[in-house]
Design a protein around this nucleic acid. Sequence first.
DNA 1: TTGAATTGTAACTAGAATCGTTACAGTTAT
DNA 2: ATAACTGTAACGATTCTAGTTACAATTCAA
Lengths: 141, 141
Amino acid sequence: MAANSQFSMAVHVLSMLARSKDENLKSDFIAGSVNTNAVVIRRLLGQLSQAKLVVSQTGANGGTRLARRPSEISLAEIYKAVNCGEVFALHAKEPNRDCPVGRNIEAVLCCLQKEIDKGIVEKLSTYSLQNLFEMVAENPA
Amino acid sequence: MAANSQFSMAVHVLSMLARSKDENLKSDFIAGSVNTNAVVIRRLLGQLSQAKLVVSQTGANGGTRLARRPSEISLAEIYKAVNCGEVFALHAKEPNRDCPVGRNIEAVLCCLQKEIDKGIVEKLSTYSLQNLFEMVAENPA
DNA sequence: TTGAATTGTAACTAGAATCGTTACAGTTAT
DNA sequence: ATAACTGTAACGATTCTAGTTACAATTCAA
């Protein structure tokens, strides 16, 4: 499959919104920067809106802006807002319950998966959208 | 796509091998516990063999055993041995270079991606296959 | 030395997930 | 009223994983 780039796109989109301050941005304009279709952006914005990270307005002169200041949005919130799966997947088919290993391995792996995910969220929560936006701005083209 | 469960399968397979000590296990037997096809297991064992975590023998009475003791194999090595992608993917299409955000976001995201991956590896390196195997053994069925 | 048991690997299929695209209903400013 | 937007459904193209079959190469053992 194509790899899931929702988090990357979300960070991109939110950086655009951070840059535009309180002005509404159109999905079409954002799509031009991300280099994709406006519907893809609107779908993503829908998730970010549900997570209360952005506010959208329909109608003429509509568009989207941040719901909070960039310094008050952590990358962890963005990560949780978009649907970007787990670090590794558990078994596709249930292992054999007649095997002492097969019987118990899933529970252990599930635990480990959660622990890793917690670590990721912790690391991401040390960055705000503001921090990230500054990195983008500083970065030499 | 179906999610990538290589790491889960690898840990499962290596736990089986840890349990069997120095005895060779057949791919067919392992497949029975993982509940998949023997070829899938052999493919996985190929990767683990390249990473020098296991040793295989062809021919009659062949099979696979651990290359080292379970206490000397960390989960981080297993993670690196199998091909289980990144936490999040970068942009599918290259962003628009004419946009100040689009121009620089990828480099920043790439950095972040590496930092997160480093965190995962650090966390995984605190567990050995032995530790994990003990968790599986202790876990109530 | 023959035969049986195994691994290694190529090739193909089925199924799932993402992204892109078109289409259109609903909303809002002017 | 009309034009400019968002929200969302529906479908296709692409890509990835895992499952499967098939078979060559290797090794043990009688």
